[in-house]
Amino acid sequence: MQDRAITAEKLTKKFGDFTAVDQISFEVSKGEIFGFLGANGAGKTTAMRMFCGLSLPTSGVATVGGFDVYSENEKIKNSIGYMSQRFSLYDDLSVIENIRFYAGIYGMSSKAIRVKAEHILKGLELEAEKNMLVGSLPLGWKQKLAFSVAIFHEPRIVFLDEPTGGVDPITRREFWQLIYEAAGEGITVFVTTHYMDEAEYCNRVSIMVDGRIEALDTPTGMKKHMGVGSMNEVFLQLARKATRTEN
């Protein structure tokens, strides 16, 4: 149980007659980088909301960080971090104010925040910019800072929503190196995305089609199994079966 960060067993979410998530089952180990893929409307967001404790499942079993998604969602929220490409930091707060704000939410002491902030800013080479407004930083730096803030309180699991869409290729590599380092420290990384090239960086990926998990394997295994050269082609083959469109 200890080394399972996320478990789902026949997890289902229905909205009236519509089954958004249809009996999905999988396990994610501690320190794994897990890619959760699917087209828009396939059910990714609904599933992720259940794991984050924002929405109750209709049926099935799921645990996040060892906590039950039905009854322990407050504990879940304390043990996860979250970052999305659309929203993560406040543009009108400075770098250090953003860090203090987010760390404060998780109840970290001022002293712990100060020590850790120094360490992180040094790692990102952002020490000179610590009093600059986040809005004035280049996009790439913002993304890296956002990730560091999301794991600042040392969560067991971090959820990333399309983290590197639109950033330049070098920043993107630096970003993935940060993710590898976080995983190396034992943080489980759960990436939802519909960018297939992002999927190639994950240890294992699942592909959701019409609310169900259609495939779950390592990227290599999946490509070999389908006899194609890229995750994009794997996805194209699976997604063609889809009948549902985005609502």
């Binding site: 087209a39 828009n40 869409g165 639109g166 519909h194 297939m196 194209l236 997604a239």
Partner: peptide, 10 residues
């Protein structure tokens, strides 16, 4: 093609 799924992109 930004924000559009792989099938639609193709």
């Amino acid at each position: 093609t930004t924000g559009v799924d792989a099938v639609s992109r193709k």
